[in-house]
Design a protein around this nucleic acid. Structure first.
Lengths: 199, 199
DNA sequence: TTGACAGGTGTCCGTCGGGACACTACCATG
DNA sequence: CATGGTAGTGTCCCGACGGACACCTGTCAA
């Protein structure tokens, strides 16, 4: 049981990924059998268990179906660093798309994209023009990067704690720490970041 | 028929999205009924048809299940700069929708996600653990951030020009500039960046 | 007032998907 | 050569998922 699944399962996984790219779901055991050339559903079932222990699929929260894990969407580049061959091998048979959206968003109905203005968070690697993924929740804790509402404007800062009171710390020495007077209104917590480079 | 679905369906769609974020699948009609508070499966079925004609879900190629469309993944984009009123207006109906994947990926077949190792690009706001969106192309120019292949390993650097030769500049004073001897092999150009914050 | 339609309820039924289990084929490996 | 674990076959059965259909109810317009 090397961490590496058998080369046959590698191929099976590839076909599963292709199917998923089309249908956005793990197929039924019967269809898996068709896809892989199995004559029996049970083989498909066992394959799913193998892929589960390899970390590519898991049961849904309701335990009524299979779902892909993040590993399922991994793009094949770990191989690349190792192998010395031409870079084109990476293209392999893979055509699927890593769904960035699913990587970043946990609760869609509470999630908003907010564009970043200014460079007050530059030391946290958040630049002007970036988009932050904001999850609307009050449950922010010290150390989180939050979108707060100060003077009726959005502001992006790191939430800190000072003498039992929340403060807003910019990640840029050129900006002052904000110590709110009364209530501090938190709009949401930053859970992700997206940047596009001009090209 | 306004292109806008009823406000009730808006709410239903939100719950469907939340469910999908967890289970990576459109739930069964029965579970939809539970989620939405329907007493009958048929209501769930009709809801699905409504969402289909609104363009949020469609049938799988095998026509044996429902799958989300790209529109299903659209997110609200907060219109921060303009707005001065209460923060809740964003929720309203305003704010355009947008799709992270489409925002970052232009040519899916040429695009690869590459995880970032190390902090050699920290001053460019690229941290260890980030994912960069890499477009495979040879057409890199000075100033681009590129993934190059040096000593059979991927390395992420800024492409620079020095005396007519390409060099690889790290964005971290602790690392040395790389001046490749022979041919410099460019794997691709970084066109985007994705980061997820633990939470 | 009266339709007409959209959204929702209640119920029946066929079938398909998956669990369980016994069995076979094929390596590896000592 | 024996042994054992892994991959795959064949078969049975049950539950639930979804299709179909009749019916109810609020709302809005003519």
């Amino acid at each position: 049981m090397p961490p590496r699944e058998s080369s046959r399962d590698d191929d099976y996984l590839g076909r599963l990924r292709d199917y998923y790219a089309d249908a956005r779901r793990i197929p039924t055991q019967q269809r898996i059998a068709e896809l892989m050339g199995f004559a029996s559903k049970t083989a498909a079932k066992k394959l799913l268990f193998r892929l589960e222990s390899a970390g590519f699929v898991e049961r849904t929260p309701d335990d009524d179906a299979w779902m892909p894990t993040p590993r399922f969407f991994e793009r094949p580049l770990a191989d690349v660093a190792v192998r010395a061959g031409g870079p084109d091998m990476i293209e392999g048979s893979q055509g699927e798309l890593f769904l960035i959206d699913q990587y970043l968003v946990r609760q869609p109905s509470r999630t908003v994209m907010v564009p970043v203005k200014g460079d007050s968070m530059i030391d946290a690697g958040i630049h002007d023009g970036d988009l932050v993924v904001v999850e609307r929740t009050k449950a922010a804790k010290s150390g989180d990067i939050v979108v707060a509402i100060v003077d009726n404007e959005f502001t992006l800062k790191e939430l800190g704690l000072e003498k039992g009171r929340f403060i807003l710390k910019p990640c840029n020495p050129a900006y002052p720490v904000i110590r709110p007077q009364g209530e501090l209104e938190i709009y949401g917590v930053v859970t992700g970041l997206v940047r596009r480079y001009a090209g």
